[in-house]
Design a binder for these strands. Structure first.
Lengths: 247, 247
DNA sequence: TGAGTACTTCTGAAAATGAGGATAACCCTC
DNA sequence: GAGGGTTATCCTCATTTTCAGAAGTACTCA
């Protein structure tokens, strides 16, 4: 059979129905704690339950575009904001029955790191949307297998801080070393030695770049003005910032 | 609308046709060089061209099971062999048009590390199957977007050797430090300082475990008998075995 | 003005690294 | 069975990196 001929005889309806969604684990830091964006579903299945934001991939849309579109829809970010958000593919989940609907739904999970964002807007499919402290999600039962997806996202985030400059995506365009340290402390959930952290960050090549300026005033409760830095152009940290007590 | 009612009214045929496959990047070491398992396609599309092994996910099959099944089918491995093979999800590809068939095909790529395996068996869909040296794949045009998938797999492998004990998956159940070194050299494509490598491997906690035995005879061209080790139970290497000259 | 806070720098000990040499066990060939 | 080349393993030593704590200083708040 010729290839062209074969293409014509192909009958897609012979295949069982399948759908593909993207779901987003969007992490940010608020009040020195790691938060994740969750929505309260406004439609079945799992109506009224909390879930990760996401939705079906459109017909002619590539996966990264679908993830970026959902991110915009759920956070109200503009395109220029989006440049400061890191978005990467996390993992794909497809266990039969993970979605109760009568078609098999695979979901390609994406992980996003965002600087402090405004309160999210509940879009058409959602009753509600909110930043939830990660600590509070442990007791929540999320819709679908979203608890598992969230756990995978957090674990990936913890790993990635070690060898990539992604912590800078959680802070503003200019930041102090202390701000950067609170990011690491929030994501890893442990205190770091401030002096060593400082030295280490500055010794990593192209991690941060001095701006020459400082904060307007010292810390809330005293202390000198801190120098301001902006992200460097490193894509990998050498040497890496290894997490302590990881035996 | 009640949830049960909604489920009944759901009409899957309203959705455009979608398929999901798994494709495998199966790496091994032969003659001190990194090889990948490729098949020559026996069916359209891309009949006669080389491609990664893979196939459609079955109806009630989870993704890891589909990957393991394809791995067995293409390599002729038994279940007990499979325990010594590392299999992990790599990335999902779904760009519209990546598959010329009139349904949109997403592929969930998996990465496998295997010890030296027998010659592969061409299964029903393939004309031919072979271990191809990685160096030779640079000039080959693979079917679909498989060149991109292969590149992603190799990059992941190079990274993972640094901080995970996966190199032990390329060798037999018992191995010498030199064998382990040839794995690193093959995957990274550079020579390592044998004495320092030796010291470093033994200093990483729970990377390898002494068996108390040695090889039956020295190396091909001389040298003393080498001690035999088996994999330890570390899941992360501390400290990591960093690749040299990575600026 | 004084007390407290926290950014930044410094110090000395401990650990890891890189390059090379030394030793001894082993293979092969003559 | 003697000798040369080969390789596993150990050792040394200079250099670099890491860690923990202390010190200095610039700021905020009362």
């Amino acid at each position: 059979m010729e290839e062209a001929e074969w293409l014509n005889s192909y009958e897609p309806r012979d295949y069982p129905p399948v759908g593909v969604t993207v779901d987003l684990v969007i992490l940010t830091i608020r009040d020195k704690e790691l938060h994740v964006l969750l929505i309260e579903r406004g439609q079945p299945p799992f109506e009224g339950e909390w879930a990760l934001p996401g939705g079906f991939v459109l017909n002619d849309e590539d996966l990264p575009d679908a993830a970026a579109r959902e991110l915009r829809e759920e956070t109200g970010l503009t395109q220029s904001d989006l440049d400061r958000v890191h978005l990467e593919q996390l993992k794909t989940f497809g266990k039969p029955g993970r979605d109760p609907r009568p078609l098999r739904v695979y979901t390609v999970a994406y992980l996003a790191f965002a600087p402090r964002l405004p309160e999210p807007v509940a879009d058409t499919d959602a009753k509600n949307a909110a930043w939830i402290p990660l600590a509070a999600t442990g007791e929540m039962k999320l819709a679908f297998d979203h608890s598992e997806i969230l756990a995978a996202g957090v674990e990936r985030a913890r790993d990635k801080l070690e060898y990539s400059p992604l912590a800078t995506r959680f802070v503003g365009p200019e930041f102090t070393i202390s701000e950067l340290r609170t990011v690491y402390e929030a994501v890893w959930g442990e205190q770091l030695h401030a002096a060593n952290f400082h030295r280490k960050v500055l010794s990593v090549r192209n991690f941060v770049e001095e701006t020459g300026r400082t904060t307007e005033r010292g810390g809330e409760r005293g202390g000198p003005r801190a120098r301001l830095y902006r992200p460097g152009d490193a894509t990998q940290l050498h040497p890496a910032l290894l997490r302590p007590t990881t035996e």
